[in-house]
Amino acid sequence: MSMLLEVNGVSVTFDGFRAINNLSINFAPTELRAIIGPNGAGKTTFMDIVTGKTKPDEGTVVWGERNISLLGMSESQIAREGIGRKFQKPTVFEAQTVRQNLAMALKTPRGPFSVLMHKKTKANGARIEAVAEQIGLADSLTRSAGELSHGQKQWLEIGMLLAQEPRLMLVDEPAAGMTPEEREKTTDILREAAKTRAVVVVEHDMEFVRRLNCKVTVLHEGSVLAEGSLDHVTSNQTVIDVYLGRSHA
């Protein structure tokens, strides 16, 4: 089957430090994938490259059926192509209501003039309410996002991703700071979302990854160390070395 996103031989260097080293990784149109790896493995930098925040020194990033190169596109163009991103720290617009947050993310024309002339429609309203339902914030639509709890903010941000209707969701540590119940709900949301699109989750928490029950890619020093089911990669000796300390070094 053809791939949604193909990252090939990408490298990037910061002040002599090779954050990403000849990284190649592919994602199918509908799949749930977890990316794990120790600190400094290049997880966040990988997301930066895909979303256009960082330009790689070499390699290609090819997107979709029409094989568009994402390199040279701006962040907003890439986002409009259908790649959504959730940050490590929950970043929602705290001064605005949950509804406004979701409305902003809703898949509508993005130009300033169409936004200026934008009119509220029933369909959009329904879509917002559906997303709010999905993330468990249906009762909080008129609340200010700043008043939400940490977990709710995480959900709101996931909800904003969903409202964007992306084909690829990049989710950075969605479970950080959540209670066990909240984690469970988060898992459900992500697994549901992955039925119709590719969802890539970067996570430290092995328990959470296990619950996602999906293919796992292990990053180390900027390239792929191992790939497969969680049980497969956790039985890999090099992965164990990386995680449990470099006994040889």
């Binding site: 907003s76 409009r80 970043t91 993005r110 936004v115 964007q164």
Partner: peptide
């Protein structure tokens, strides 16, 4: 201008420019 969706986006740019950009809005415009 500052009410409605335009206002939302403009205030969003004030509070977190990068987030608005990753939502697909061309912040510069």
């Amino acid at each position: 201008i500052v009410s409605g969706k335009m206002g939302s986006i403009v205030k969003g740019i004030r509070d977190n420019e990068a987030r608005v950009r990753f939502l697909g809005y061309h912040v510069e415009s």
